[in-house]
Design a protein around this nucleic acid. Structure first.
Length: 932
DNA sequence: TGGGGGAAGGTTTTT
DNA sequence: CCTTCCCCCA
């Protein structure tokens, strides 16, 4: 959107006072915020604003990527911004992401922490049921009843979240306080964060007024918070603290009508109170909707006006025409089969209808609507099966992102079978059959038999000595990889490339399932128990947790009808939207029964506890969000559900709809519609690559595919952590030296001690040996190099390369030194190499050339040398001088890489010298050839 | 028309 | 384990 309305222009250019922007659905919010950021970088109002002065928070990573891309695109295109440097210092991302980065960059002890996601946290809690305090929590109604392992794990985690993310109203009972202490203590002891702790630690560190505090105070001048209506109390505190520390100009953007995340305690009172909390502040309301026709906006207004809200009205900018009796319709059917069948037929009939996203733009060409222009929005996933049935009858392609069905596909059942076989719950013949029945495969039985023969040597009872003690690390991941290799299961073994990819994606996803489990349960017990716990994990936790693998392809947007929940659709728009199933108990959803965290925690102790429960207004907002996704066609419908007594009556929203004259009960006369050739919206998926992934690509395109698309996880190894420990130690030494600290030999050893972390070593006797090895290497490094520390210019510097066509390359440079030689400065980019970590493959000069490009973006200068420092022998390899044409060549190689990734055509290298070092050889045709 | 009792049914998801 | 529906009875 090149032309901004006067209101949008004010929102962009007014940066002298705190500002609340109320942005209606479809009001061009992201474009406006992006323009605001580039406007700041232009420095028109005040003296130069540097990227590091800006923090912009978004609610999700996806929203962050979208905003970042828009900003970077403008920077690329606007000549006045040509000289902006160090873009990577500007933060655009989630609050959690910022807190983690801020902690790790400024408070050295967090460098070795990692974040546990949902499933790993559950594993960790169950594994430590007693130690983590779960057994201390008792029911409010009866303190003899405690939380049960496995059964109450989710509730326990929810309870921990609630008490740490909300505002308390009174004292928590002592058993909960105790559990909280144990919980946080054990996580920290193991160098783990959960999502809440990232924020609470950042808040604590800000209060300590040390490094992080000083950094914020110095740098932060503009704070932008998107989706401010979804903020919860802990996030509110964090934002307020940043504000108190640095007194930045704060801009919040949001729409109280779109607060739909109440179960996290998010609360639109923050946006409502903003003008008072952040005085003096002014306000701009963006009420023009550039997305939808006036029929859609009128209907949405009718619905939402029943809510208690910030007064405003949304006005359609009429970028779509509205044809009453045709575009916005409500229909009732006698059965859900008929309802869903009609939806499928409507998709067929409407496909090819001419469409423009802006009818007033004479330059925009018309295109025919295609599958990806249709969205079916759901309140709950329970409706999916019926819809999918009808779509399949008419051969309509669709995607359902969010249905976790990984374990229902045959290839994953077969992969699971490997471990059932090891557990002796299925026979060899059954396992063989599981693999043979995989769609489209040409797996040779004799190869599979080789795989099974290999498994015969891996029965867990064979992996222990006479005393029942494990004789070697029993790695399920290793067994999995080896089985795939011996059985020659790889892409070449399929008749169709398309199916091969889907199957390999799913097998890759299963590899991640193993990885999630083994990261927490690595070597924790005897092999048979390890296997048993894994099978338990799959049955009780993993089975409905993982989506099918191919849905995760980040580089492709398929042309298919989108079936998704309303929550997922937030922020999106579609020419055609269906909202089926408008029944009582579905929308508004019925209150859910069952045991909750509130049976273990008195609701009166939590301020605004009602937010976690939700209300009729919350459901109405959800309906509002669903309606406002539509650009032109909106079809709402219902039918009594013959199979479910809860969904037989109409939703109360049906009668609310009827108050608007935009909506009509009618089936549209589609057959009269003019049709043109269907053609999906052309939007190049933006691609973010990091430097190490690119290096893979340069060595072998197919390896990139195996690593970055299929995501097979490499087997864990006890010694993992050595490279990272060493790396983190050097980082702290370099950073502190750069700040002018004189470190003694003892300090250096202390640092090494503090930064050493071997997550898979447990209480093994090797631990001390490994730590000593880190110390030894570091001491030697320090002795040999401390004189050059005065020349350090950047340590662990983050860089970003913003190439054309939405390609973003990110990375971190270990060390940059700058030294005066006679009258000229010489800059050297240094990367450290340590052989110990299995996953770290060799560093190449390709990679360093990439760093040189990043360095040029950072400083505007071309570095003089690139150099590799070998920590194994504590020697620097001879520096290589850098020429401008190295950079140009690297640049064009990245462009080429992006083109290949977009077209998804990866060629396999078939060369012994590359393949023999490849860690992915188990699942690669050439790899197997050269390695077995 | 009100309520007792039994049977059925059972969110949303990001970090 | 709790909510909602539905039927039956007063």
């Amino acid at each position: 959107m090149l032309n901004f309305t006067p209101d949008q222009q004010r929102a962009i250019s007014e940066n002298d006072k705190n500002l609340r922007i109320i942005a209606c659905a479809g009001s061009g919010k992201t474009s406006t915020v992006a323009a605001k950021i580039t406007h700041l970088l232009l420095g028109e109002n005040n003296a130069a604003v540097e990227p590091r002065n800006i923090i912009a928070f978004t609610y999700t990573e996806k929203a962050a990527a979208e905003l970042r891309n828009k900003v970077l695109k403008t920077i690329k295109e606007d000549d006045r911004l040509k000289n902006v440097q160090a873009i990577a210092d500007m933060y655009i991302g989630t609050i959690h992401g910022w807190c983690l980065k801020a902690l790790q960059e400024n408070e050295y002890q967090y460098q070795k922490f990692s974040v546990l996601d949902d499933i790993k946290l559950r594993l960790f809690v169950d594994k430590n049921y007693k130690k983590i305090g779960m057994s201390d929590v008792t029911k409010v109604s009866n303190d003899d009843i405690t939380m049960q392992i496995f059964v109450d794990t989710k509730r326990f985690i929810q309870l921990m979240n609630v008490i740490r993310e909300s505002e308390l109203d009174g004292e928590l009972p002592s058993h909960i306080v105790l559990a909280k202490q144990k919980y946080e203590g054990l996580l920290k002891e193991n160098c783990y964060f959960d999502f809440t702790m990232i924020m609470t630690e950042a808040i604590d560190k800000l209060q300590e007024k040390r490094d992080l505090y000083n950094k914020i105070k110095k740098d932060l001048k503009y704070l932008i918070v998107d989706e401010y209506q979804d903020i919860n109390p802990i996030q509110g505190i964090l934002i307020n603290q940043l504000y108190q520390v640095a007194k930045p100009v704060i801009t919040v953007v949001g729409d109280d009508d779109q607060n739909i995340y109440q179960w996290r305690g998010s609360n639109s009172s923050f946006i409502k109170d903003f003008l008072h909390d952040y005085e003096p502040a002014h306000e701009i309301i963006l009420d023009r909707n550039f997305r939808s026709s006036k029929g859609v906006t009128a209907l949405a207004e009718t619905i939402i006006s029943r809510n208690d809200r910030i007064p405003k009205s949304m006005i359609s900018a009429e970028k779509q025409t509205f044809s009453k009796n045709n575009d916005v319709l409500y229909n009732e059917f006698v059965s859900t089969v008929e309802e869903n069948g009609t939806i499928a037929q409507m998709i067929v009939d409407l496909r090819g209808t001419p469409f423009k996203s802006n009818v007033t733009d004479p330059n925009e060409p018309e295109r025919g609507l295609d599958y990806s222009d249709f969205a079916i929005l759901l309140r709950t996933w329970s409706k999916t099966a019926g819809i999918v049935n009808e779509l399949e009858k008419l051969d309509i392609p669709y995607i359902t992102a969010g249905v976790n069905q990984l374990f229902s596909v045959n290839e994953v059942k077969a992969a699971y079978g490997i471990f059932q076989y090891l557990n002796k719950s299925i026979s060899a013949e059954e396992l063989l059959q599981l693999w043979i029945q995989i769609r489209n495969s040409n797996f040779a039985s004799n190869n599979l038999l080789l795989g099974i023969e290999y498994l015969n040597s891996k029965f867990p009872e064979k992996q222990v000595d006479r005393n029942g003690k494990a004789i070697w690390a029993f790695s399920l991941q290793q067994i999995y990889w080896d089985f795939l290799e011996k059985s020659q299961i790889n892409e070449e073994a399929f008749q169709s490339q398309h199916i091969a990819e889907i199957v390999m994606y799913n097998l890759g996803k299963f590899s991640q399932v193993i990885n999630d489990f083994e990261e927490i349960y690595f070597n924790s017990s005897v092999p048979s128990y390890h296997l048993f716990s894994f099978l338990q994990f799959i049955r009780y936790a993993a089975a409905d947790h993982y989506p099918e693998g191919w849905l995760n392809n980040p580089f492709r947007a398929p042309n298919a009808v989108q079936i998704m929940t309303i929550h997922q659709a937030k922020g999106l728009e579609f020419p055609v939207v269906f909202i089926p199933g408008l029944n009582k108990n579905y929308m508004p959803a019925k209150k859910v029964g069952g045991l909750t965290e509130w049976h273990f925690l008195n609701p009166a102790l939590i301020k605004n506890q009602q937010r976690y429960i939700g209300s009729e207004e919350d459901e109405r907002r959800l309906f509002y969000v669903a309606i406002t996704r539509a650009q032109k066609f909106l079809f709402i419908s219902r039918a009594p559900d013959e199979n479910n007594q809860l969904y037989r009556k109409a939703s109360q929203f049906v009668s609310e709809l009827a108050e608007s004259d935009a909506i009509v009960t009618n089936l549209p006369p589609f057959e009269k519609n003019l049709k043109i050739e269907a053609s999906p919206k052309k939007e190049a998926v933006s691609i973010t690559l990091n430097f190490s992934v690119l290096k893979d690509f340069f060595e072998c395109q197919y390896r990139f595919k195996l690593v970055s698309m299929y995501n097979f996880s490499y087997p864990l190894d006890q010694r993992m952590g050595f490279g990272r420990s060493l790396h983190n130690t050097l980082m702290e030494i370099h950073k502190r030296s750069k700040l002018g600290e004189e470190l003694s030999q003892d300090d250096v050893l202390d640092i090494a001690n503090g930064q050493s972390h071997f997550p898979y070593l447990g209480k093994s006797t090797i631990l001390e040996q490994m730590k000593d090895l880190v110390k030894e290497r570091v001491a030697e490094y320090y002795k040999r190099n401390k004189d050059s520390f005065k020349n350090i210019e950047y340590v662990e510097q983050e860089i970003q390369l913003n190439l054309d066509n939405g390609i973003l390359v990110t990375g971190k440079i270990d060390l940059i030194r700058r030294k005066l030689y006679e009258d000229k400065y010489e800059t050297t980019i240094i990367e450290f190499k340590s052989k110990q970590d299995v996953q770290n493959q060799k560093i190449t000069y390709d990679q360093l050339n990439l760093y040189a490009l990043g360095h040029k973006e950072l400083t505007g200068q071309t570095a003089d040398y690139i150099q590799i420092y070998d920590l194994e022998y504590n020697t620097q390899l001879p520096p290589k001088s850098l020429r401008e044409d190295n950079l140009e060549e690297t640049n064009s190689r990245i462009q080429n890489a992006a083109a290949v990734i977009r077209s998804q055509t990866f060629s396999r290298i078939d060369k012994k010298e590359v393949c023999k070092d490849c860690l992915q050889y188990h699942i690669c045709h050439s790899g197997i050839k050269y390695n077995s």
